[in-house]
């Protein structure tokens, strides 16, 4: 028994040490750029990220405007059910009391105010690729919305216990290199790459994960088992070479209109909601995404 206790203490201490080592610190507020927020661009980020799909109003606020990210709707994942929180500027139940720095830390480091580690069901491993200016704009857009009072339920007990390991997991996930633009490519291609790798977080479903649930960069956007549902998520590589789309314009048209134009590959597996969000983007951004995706072999 004594041996067991000793082993437990040792393991806990080791895990604690690793946890401390692996925990990225929060970004201090004075590291934020001097930037005049543009809520209009924030709206573009909101649509590119499809925030509303997970943060849509849950059953407790069934009467709320469906376009407001009031949160609380269940999100089923293989590790359990999450309730994405309220993103409206309600000070008590939403993020109205958050500073820009709080928001940037949640989005890029997975740390909520008070140092709480966030579960990666919230795809900050993609959002960390976003520009600070875009994040500040997104916060300004969220702040411009009508506040809704709605406290999303907390995660259940088995998941709550996992939270202690999150700092470690974040250390692993953040060890992967972040997205960087390619100076040899066009501005349009880089815009598409940014939207796909950053706000669009396409890799969260289209890139398979390794045994530790970290996205496998060597199989970037190559498709894999569906993380939320049965079936598989298709590969986004070689979309034109494999005859899925005729050319870049055809792919852009598919992203813009989806099955409303008869493209029946963009409705199932959750892509229908993604495509609806994409359809709200400026056409130049949709074309940029198509340009980038078409280049993936």
């Amino acid at each position: 028994m004594r041996l067991l206790i000793a082993a437990f203490v040792l393991v806990t201490a080791a895990a604690g040490g690793l946890y401390w080592l692996a925990t990225p610190g929060a970004l201090p507020a004075d590291r934020l750029p001097d930037h005049v927020a543009d809520p209009g661009n924030g709206r573009v980020m909101f649509d590119a990220g499809g925030c509303i799909t997970c943060h849509k109003p849950g059953p407790d606020v069934a009467g709320a405007d469906a376009g407001l990210p009031a949160g609380g709707a269940p999100l089923e994942t293989p590790v359990g059910t999450f309730y994405p929180p309220n993103l409206t500027p309600d000070r008590e139940t939403g993020i109205g009391g958050w500073s820009d720095a709080d928001f940037v830390n949640a989005m890029t480091r997975g740390i909520a105010p008070g140092g709480v580690h966030l579960f990666p069901a919230f795809p900050y491993t993609s959002y960390r690729n976003m520009r600070m200016e875009d994040l500040i704009d997104l916060k300004a857009y969220l702040d411009s919305l009508t506040p809704v009072k709605n406290a999303a339920p907390a995660v259940g007990a088995p998941l709550g216990l996992l939270r202690v390991g999150l700092g470690l997991w974040q250390g692993l996930a953040f060890a992967e290199p972040a997205f960087a633009p390619d100076p040899d490519r066009s501005a349009r291609w880089n815009r598409g790459a940014y939207l796909v790798n950053g706000p669009g977080h396409c890799g969260q479903c289209h890139t398979p994960r390794n045994a530790l649930m970290v996205m496998d960069a060597s199989r970037f956007l190559a498709g894999g088992p569906h993380p939320e549902d049965e079936g598989r998520v298709p590969s986004l590589r070689g979309l034109i070479a494999r005859g899925k789309y005729k050319d870049t314009d055809d792919l852009a048209s598919a992203l813009q209109y989806g099955e409303l134009f008869g493209y029946d590959g963009l409705s199932s597996g959750g892509m229908g909601a993604v495509q609806t969000n994409l359809s709200k983007l400026p056409e130049t951004d949709i074309k940029a995404i198509a340009d980038y995706l078409a280049s993936l072999q």
Binding site: G223, H226, D229, E230, G231, R232, V233, P234, S235, R242, K244, Y257, G258, E259, L260, F261, G262, D264, G265, S267, S268, G269, M271, G272, A273
Partner: peptide
């Protein structure tokens, strides 16, 4: 009218059809 029909296809496929294995 065409987009209305496509939208009806989408509404059903979103909920009741699995992704194509590709």
């Amino acid at each position: 009218a065409f987009m209305g029909l496509g939208g009806a296809c989408k509404a059903c496929h979103e909920k009741y059809r699995k992704p194509e294995d590709s």
